[in-house]
């Protein structure tokens, strides 16, 4: 499913003292099956932007096409759109409300008009996918741990089987282990379910590792859009708007400035390890060659 945004503008509380332009002429296309990282500083408009994707917020001007259809047409089926574009809000555990975990996850599918059995089946599938144990199904969602709550809440959206999954800062407030769990889970979902994923974050580290494409937002408009390598090449511009490239990129650039011949466009720890290993191996063979002579 492709989503295309054309000249989207959004103004908060238009005509009041609190008026603020949150989005400025945003043009984007999200292609089927992409894993996109949406990055920006607090207040850069990224949360506002994603709320447009499933029609929760209506743009002040501009058009948004989902599979070629403008969702602002009066005949457009918004409820159908919300099933197709699953939106996981920041701190999604704050939306849990049911008496037990299973029922809470069933809420979405039931709203889609599925029968109790179908909804339950989907809920169980989603819960299994996020790694929540079966013996937690009957527990109150409020008795779960922080990380589990978040995963249960994500399952609540997954159970609707969306074609596009949008997550707003899914790792906010989690410990490093919880963070890795959630990010691993999202990347696995992308691989296994072949769905489009939009991951919103202000942490470069989080996204660099997983996404194929990064969109950088600044003051309501798209500043950069490209592969992680392309985007992180603009380190000076990123620093100017209060963002940074991943620490490992800084490290490799530092090494390169010291005269060590490593690539400067490394963005993940894994890549850096390979690069350093390659370098060491070359040194070794060079050393042996020198000794042999």
């Amino acid at each position: 499913m492709s989503i295309k945004l054309e000249h989207l503008n959004y103004i908060y509380s238009q005509g009041t003292a609190y008026e603020k332009q949150a989005l400025r002429d945003v043009c984007l296309e999200l292609r089927d099956g992409e894993f996109v990282g949406l990055i920006g500083h607090t207040g850069s408009g990224k949360s506002t932007l994603i709320q447009h994707l499933n029609g929760l917020v209506r743009a002040t001007s501009g058009a948004l096409y989902v599979d070629g259809k403008n969702i602002y047409d009066s005949s457009y089926n918004m409820k159908g759109l919300r099933a197709k574009v699953g939106l996981v809000f920041q701190y999604p555990e704050y939306q849990l409300f049911e008496v037990n975990v299973l029922k809470d996850v069933c809420f979405g599918p039931k709203n889609q008009g599925l029968t109790d059995e179908e909804a339950e089946e989907r809920a169980k599938k989603a819960l299994a996918q996020v790694g929540i144990d079966e013996n937690c199904y009957e527990q109150s969602p409020f008795d779960l741990s922080g990380g589990q709550k978040r995963r249960a809440a994500i399952a609540g959206v997954l159970a609707m089987e969306p074609e596009v999954l949008v997550l707003d800062e899914p790792t906010a407030g989690l410990d490093p282990r919880g963070r890795l769990e959630i990010l691993g889970l999202i990347s696995r979902l992308h691989r296994e379910r072949r769905i489009t994923v939009v991951l919103v974050s202000h942490s470069m580290e989080d996204v660099a590792e997983y996404v194929e494409r990064i969109i950088v937002m600044n003051k309501g408009s798209v500043m950069l859009d490209g592969t992680p390598k392309e985007v992180f090449a603009h380190d000076k511009e990123l620093e100017q708007v209060g963002l940074a490239v991943p620490q490992v990129t800084y490290l490799m650039r530092g090494l390169s400035e010291l005269g060590i011949p490593v690539r400067r466009d490394v963005t993940t720890v894994e890549e850096a390890r390979e690069e350093i290993r390659r370098l060491l191996k070359r040194r070794e063979t060079c050393g042996q060659a020198a000794e042999g002579q």
Binding site: F89, P92, V157
Partner: peptide, 27 residues
């Protein structure tokens, strides 16, 4: 925020009769 989050999960706060509306307030 919660309203938006539940709407994203397909909740409907507007339509329905009084009892359905009251029920839809639970989430």
């Amino acid at each position: 925020k919660i309203m938006k989050a539940q709407t994203a999960r397909g909740a409907d706060f507007e339509s329905g009769n009084l009892i359905q509306k009251a029920k839809s307030m639970v989430p």
